[in-house]
Design a protein around this nucleic acid. Sequence first.
RNA 1: GACCCUAUCGUCUAGCCUGGUCUAGGACAAGAGCUUUUCAAGCUCUCGACUGGGGUUCAAAUCCCCAUAGGGUCACCA
Length: 438
Amino acid sequence: MANDSVRVRFAPSPTGFLHIGGGRTALFNWLYARSKGGKFILRIEDTDALRSKQEFVDEILDSLKWLKFDWDEIYYQSQRFPVYRQQAEKLLNSGKAYIEKTEGKGEAIIYKVNPQEVTVNDLIRGEIKFDTSVIKDQVLIKSDGTPTYNFACVVDDALMNITDVIRGDDHISNTPKQVLIYNALDFRVPNFAHLPLIMGTEGGRLSKRTGATAISDYRKMGYLPEALVNYLLLLSWSPGEDKEVIDISEAIRLFKITDVNKTSATFDMKKLDWMNNQYLKNEPTEKLAQQLVGILAEKGLINKEKYDKEYLANIVKLFQGRLSKVNDFADWADFFFLEEIIPDPAARAKHLNRDLSKEFKLFSERLDKLEKFDIATIEEAFRKLVAELGIEAKTLIHPVRVALTGKTIGPGLFEVIYYLGKDRAKKRLLKWAKQEGV
RNA sequence: GACCCUAUCGUCUAGCCUGGUCUAGGACAAGAGCUUUUCAAGCUCUCGACUGGGGUUCAAAUCCCCAUAGGGUCACCA
């Protein structure tokens, strides 16, 4: 029975970064393994020595770790060349393959394709039939001695006891070629499941032209791995019952490979943003703050070595619910960490377009006189002031917000004043009062 | 060009397998409004789809065929 246990693999080629499509393939493999109590195997397909780079291997492993797809075993094809040659020689000996000499180069081993009908039973698409008479003879071992993709893939999947091959749609037409080799080598043919591709908004496959494609780009932009995984999960799969925010343990419980859609999905950044916001809201504030330290330090807003941890956490809490990307925080909350601010020109034109010296000075004085400096007291003082001045609260709230934050949007004004502190609030109000008063 | 895959709101999808409960449900986006303070947050509402044509059937988004459209693959790349 142990031999029947599920084994799946994710087999990236380290000729580039782990991209969104690869991440999704990894996700479905990983989910399938975890939902079946099976093994998730990582196989680095680095047979192309020229294009494969160690930095890409590192990047791919980092991205997978970030997404929390832990693997049970890892293999490198570049270390298994003798295995492929051995299997190719078997086919040579049984007369199913032949040698072709290329002048100036070495000998290639080529598999002879006989015309026949091959039926593939896809877990997602059902039966797919192919006529192999349209398939050319397949190179197994290239004249430089390295194996071809289709050959190494079959040999490894068979020898690694892979039970289910879950991969992108673009491999459908490789499948009959591979089935031929499984049969020729007397290997058991695994189950296949071909995932629909992720498309870009312009049509065609998701590409760099349409937006960021590397998983690591999304990490840099400030998406949470849980949110990205949840979003990817919803591309081509749905748990039903209109559920969309699904944590990974629930996904493992509900996931069925046969429920995966056959239709390709378009990657929608807006929905990803929304999803990220959903996760950001529930993220522990301390953890988020911790994540922000690097970004804030980089922008010169805090000193990495010594900053007020509690203060940062308080400010993060203020913005947490309105953020769609972690990194937005630095732009939206900069005024809390700066001594001097430069108001956004548009905000200034909209709300600081008249002389408010009197109002600002008065409010500054009221703030100064407060015995207790808390949110409720600040609001009380403000409301009292506007009542005395006989103006609507909002006619003063907006200009004050711009004077204090430089922006037209942000958290509630009285919270802003509280966390800014009496001195900085007064200073910013008076600075503006003076300028306008001259 | 050949072969293969696919086809529900702008986008992601539920429904399709086991035809009637579908005047097709949800989410994102968009638009409108509310929130005695903003919105990128929250709440409410609106807009919006079964690709077309043939069958089968009392009945089709659901089953079958064709057309069309989109996508993928045709390397000594993976």
